[in-house]
Design a protein around this nucleic acid. Structure first.
Lengths: 198, 198, 198, 198
DNA sequence: AATGAATGAGAGTTCATTCAT
DNA sequence: GATGAATGAACTCTCATTCAT
């Protein structure tokens, strides 16, 4: 469970296990995932999994924890690249929409995996996705500075704005002829008309 | 499998089976659902389930098919109450948002159940939710009549608009102090600013 | 778990399971006993065992409970046949020794099985074997009536007297050329010389 | 496997392994004993056990062999302290009973360990406990010299006499308020009345 | 010689499915 | 048609044993 004190070979095996687990959990779900197949795909023996994770549920918990940390980092990375604080609002929407999109694209199996959190070992409660929190904060700032309409519920709008991109994302994934940029454009446009103060 | 040739008692048993199945699948998922418990809750013997459905997967397929038909009907009912065709556009958005909301509220287990479609017998491919189709059609009509902006992708927008309400819906469900009408107001407002032609 | 409400066929299967279990537990012990082999020897499927006993430990508990009831009955039967209360003491010893011997002979796997009680489901604590209690009571009566020496500890002597027969029994079992009556004779003789008052 | 050619450090490790093994086998039994725990308690790695003993069964065999040698020595030590050959018979019984008692007290885990011999590597057949052999020999000598009754089967009596002490021993162990000397007194007294020639 | 991570066969247990009643 | 006892394949998890370090 601790990444401390592991040889490179061990760390690599842990990664392989987590990677194989991720694929199986995301595509099949918790119960249908067979540890024997996970082990085979990870190139280790079943017992090796149990050297690191004490049960299937703990394996999921570990995976979710790692995932969440990654998502948070990825989202801040994506948002950060635009130096968002200094960007005025119509453009800022495009940056946020783009960041959500990129994060979701980088982890397309995230919704499927988060849906499994009920099976995880107790410790890992489903955490609120970081992205929605950031959106809400951006909205509040925009409202305070007068750039955005004051007559909306920031939290609810954050959820709605996120759901918008997520849903569009799903349509894009299912329909490979579409360009992902369409989402950014449509979303930024929607945000601007919907939320700008003027 | 055929609703033909069934006595009232038999039809009633089929209903009880599907109802119990629905509860179990929605709250536990596919694999964790035990047919023995479904049978007990339906007040029949396990074997009786197999007289009507040839496997657990087929039982799910049957349930999903019935569900979809119901959702479609419910959505048209909800939209229809406003005589939507005659309603001008800013108000029409509120009607649609309200219909989506009502339909979702009436079938809160729908997302959980639809998520199981991968387990269903092959025949039942995941069907497009009827609501999104209706939205798209409404948008196309609005665009054609000049009420709505022509520079948007109707299909993508339908998905985004639906995702918006769905996501808000989830926030409402998790936060019981909020009033569902907030969603209708916020959504209709967002749709109007985002999509109206002017 | 309840013998009530079982068809003859079911009762017969339960017996077969318990019989096969007994053989395996007695000859191999708890852990080495495989339920798959028990099932095979009982002529049922593994799952059938679990219809009646919720775990391997519960199966053992059930077996021990049945065994104890049987032993107690057998011992009282054996002692009872000689109308022991009316028999004077030198002969009474022979009756008791004979009863212990018969009981032990009828259940030669008893010590091996009782030794497993630590593995049984919690409810079944190891009960004191009935035989020793009866011996002690016989000794007290003999002492009170003056037939037996008063300067011995009845309880300790009961244990010693029982250990004597049990140990001899083991030697007899291991050595098939010996006649079991030797034990009765030797034991009754030993008891008489050791314990009679005169 | 050979005690030859071992450095003091190695010999010490072997001892630690056997000691830990003994505790585990005696308190838990064969199958439930985990070599990983034995290794941990012995302060060595699992692999180190396999440098000395080729399997779990062989480890048990080795332990039993050492144990038997120890018991034999202990019994002769205990008997020998009384210069038994020269002691006349009524007293000789007390010495023997005392020796059996002492030996059993010094190795209270012996019965539990001997019971495992079925699991031991084939080579190690269950060995006759040395004490019974010595008893038998003492009885034969007593009979030959006329000190003891000639009309008893020396071997059977040896078993009975030993079972007597062993059974009393168990009662004493379970009942801590009793004094162990009671056993010696009761046993010697029983032996005398039962077996002396007069 | 010593280590302990890795292995994988095999255990107990569950539950969809069957079929005699 | 309805039942539910019976089935046995397949799951998760354990641990004696091996072997690269």
């Amino acid at each position: 469970m601790d990444d401390q004190d592991l040889s490179p070979g061990q760390r690599q095996k842990s990664s392989a296990i987590l990677a194989a687990t991720r694929t199986h959990f995301a595509t099949r779900g918790f119960e249908p995932t067979k540890l024997s197949e996970v082990a085979r795909d990870a190139g280790v023996a079943v017992g090796t999994i149990y050297l690191r994770y004490s049960s299937k549920a703990e394996l999921l918990a570990e995976l979710l924890a790692e995932l969440l940390a990654g998502v948070e980092a990825a989202f801040y990375d994506a948002v950060g690249t635009g130096d968002i604080g200094a960007t005025p609002f119509p453009e800022r929407f495009a940056l946020i929409a783009s960041a959500v999109l990129e994060t979701a694209r980088a982890q397309p199996d995230l919704p499927a995996l988060m849906a499994l959190s009920a099976f995880a070992a107790p410790a890992t409660a489903t955490p609120k996705l970081a992205m929605i929190g950031v959106m809400e904060q951006q909205l509040r700032e925009g409202i305070k500075t007068g750039a955005l309409r004051p007559d909306v519920d920031a939290k609810l709008v954050a959820h709605m704005a996120h759901g918008m991109v997520e849903s569009a994302m799903r349509e894009i994934m299912a329909n490979p002829t579409r360009a992902p940029q369409e989402i950014v454009q449509h979303s930024a446009d929607a945000y601007a008309r919907w939320l700008l103060a003027s």
